[in-house]
Design a protein around this nucleic acid. Structure first.
Lengths: 255, 255
DNA sequence: TAATAATCCGTTGTATACAACAATCAGTGA
DNA sequence: TCACTGATTGTTGTATACAACGGATTATTA
């Protein structure tokens, strides 16, 4: 059996590195470590109570994830992202999810393989149909939405693709759920949710029918919802703070 | 000016880590470190004359690149790749290069921006037209081919996309040039080169005309040449040793 | 003989010591 | 007053010391 599943208070061999990685990522996304600023390692040592070795390990990982940059003079800097970077990340995710959807369709998975995602789409359906969406409903939506996207990638049955998608998701504003809270305050919020859910249903249908091209096109179009929300969020600094990693976004000066 | 461009014998701050990274990557691709086997750090210390700290840094980077895996019990293992993994990597590269080609076309770059890639395609044209291809010609081809793919990605003007493509290229058999040597010994070698070059020309043309869909489709189809070569290489163990990282490939048992 | 318990060795993850370099600041000279 | 030089401090990259854990080997018992 898997070791220590009790309360998941496993003590893995590399607990310090994991702790440093999680904490540092959190600090970067919080804006606690301001973008463009050097990460002072000794400062982190003091704050986390972990020695420099695991901290530097974590920084290397964060650099590979793209959240920090490696300075030529030594040390690391928190990266900042332009609106173009974010749009590109979303487009890239859309492209890769499109590939996943097409492959899933072309594989012709049998009913049992599709059971989970059908269930997921079903749950989303009943959720969306509610008159009012409470805060809990929204967090349910986020969980189900994440699950849908995860299952979609799994259906492609490609470890390489999965890894690549997970990689881009490390940029928090590239996530399918990044703009849900921004969206939830728009007057057309419900309509957008309906459209997104229509996409989910249609993608599933395309996969069931083996329609690879349709599945791919739909998944791409689906990601454009995030693009639209991004444009809205960019128009209002206050909303930027509501999306994960919003403090890392440095808007280009508008002409 | 850039520092120390004289003979590039720069001594960067992190020379040991860089050395360890390059050497380790080489050892993995050589098969010097057999796939599936634990990387004994002390062993590497002895072989490279570098202490464990930079070696572990390099191992973390290699793990992010996908060449080694992080063992739950501690330490790292050299990964092995199935033929499916390789096919998936090539397909993913094709998909991302397709996105790059489409974006390049949709951007409508002006003549000066296109000068370099036109020159590159021109050089390839004259190279291909030769009656016989010497060994030097082949290494020229590899260089020009790499340049074409690099310029294509640059034309997309997306740092995010570029980073993601460079990432997948760290898997050596995903590179556009991975199978050139295998290909060169086939009877139909010249014909394949002609087809590939026709693709290059057409992709450039599509970009010049702003034909995004066409550019994307062509770039994807272009990557299928690598798929075909892969199938050929897999049919013959001897040829596997001629492609970079061939020792990491573990063929699935054939039914 | 086979299975289990105990011990030893090797290896990893972490902390720390140290040396080289960069940046900052004070001081001197014109 | 300003420019330039020298020293000083802080920070990084590297090496190493150490402790905990895993795996293997041996010993013991049913």
């Amino acid at each position: 059996m898997s070791a220590g599943s009790a309360t998941s208070d496993d003590k893995p061999r590399n607990a310090q590195t994991v702790k440093a990685l999680l904490k540092l990522r959190e600090m970067v996304l919080n804006g606690e470590l301001p973008p463009g600023e050097r990460v002072a390692e000794l400062n982190i040592v003091e704050r986390l109570g972990v020695s420099r070795t695991p901290i530097r390990m974590a920084l290397v990982r964060l650099e590979e994830e793209g959240l920090v940059d490696c300075l030529a003079t030594g040390g690391f800097v928190v990266r900042e992202f332009s609106d173009q970077d974010i749009a590109d990340s979303i487009e890239l995710r859309g492209t890769m999810e499109g590939m996943a959807a097409r492959r899933a369709a072309e594989r012709r998975p049998d009913r049992t393989e599709l059971a989970e995602i059908r269930d997921c789409v079903g749950s989303l359906d009943t959720l969306i149909r509610r008159r009012e969406l409470s805060m809990d409903d929204f967090s349910d939506y986020i969980r189900l939405n994440d699950r849908f996207h995860g299952l979609l990638v799994d259906l492609a049955a490609s470890a390489v693709l999965k890894r690549s998608i997970e990689r881009i998701l490390h940029l928090p504003f590239a996530s399918p759920n990044a703009f849900v809270f921004v969206q939830s305050e728009l007057p057309e919020s419900r309509e957008i949710l309906s459209i997104a859910q229509e996409h989910h249903r249609s993608i599933l249908e395309a996969i069931e029918h083996g329609e690879g091209g349709r599945a791919e096109a739909l998944a791409r179009e689906h990601s454009r919802i995030a693009q639209r929300n991004l444009q809205i969020a960019l128009s209002n600094q206050q909303q930027l703070d509501r999306i994960p990693g919003g403090s890392l976004i440095r808007q280009r000066e508008r002409a």
